[in-house]
Simulated assay, not measured.
Amino acid sequence: MAVSYKKLFHLMIDKGITNAELMEKGGFSANIITRLKRDHYVALDSIEKICYALDCGVDDILEFIPEEKGH
């Protein structure tokens, strides 16, 4: 299964939080933001920091996308 972080970026817009503010609140590097934007794997501890910084749950920032059969 693939992961999409589109919900995270919509939540950040709704809360008026920039990438820089999220990095500062969460205590992680710009590399994590880049990985999120590309829907790449992000370690669970980073997901936890993001949820804590945004006061939200995991299901508020990511969703699993089933991969198409035969690919």
Rank of each mutant, 00 (worst) to 15 (best):
D60H: 09
L36M: 10
E67A: 11
D45W: 12
T34M: 01
G16A: 06
C56L: 04
K6A: 15
K49E: 11
D39G: 00
I50R: 10
K15I: 02
K6P: 01
V58N: 06
K15W: 02
F64I: 15
N19A: 12
G57T: 14
K6V: 06
L62W: 04
R38N: 14
G26S: 03
L8G: 09
M12A: 04
L54Q: 12
V3P: 05
N31L: 08
L11P: 11
C56K: 09
A30C: 01
R38A: 13
L8I: 09
V3E: 00
V58Q: 06
L62C: 08
D60P: 05
A53T: 07
F64V: 14
A2S: 14
R38P: 00
M1F: 07
A30L: 04
I33P: 02
V42W: 03
R35K: 14
D45C: 09
H71S: 12
A20M: 13
L44R: 12
Y41Q: 07
I65R: 13
I32M: 05
N19W: 12
G16D: 03
K37Q: 08
N31K: 15
V58K: 13
R35Q: 13
D55M: 05
A53I: 09
D59G: 00
I13R: 15
L62E: 02
D39C: 07
K25E: 09
I33Y: 02
Y41E: 07
E67D: 12
D59I: 04
D59Y: 08
I47M: 10
M1C: 11
E63P: 00
V3L: 03
E24K: 15
G27R: 09
A20H: 14
L11I: 11
E24Q: 14
K25P: 03
K15Y: 04
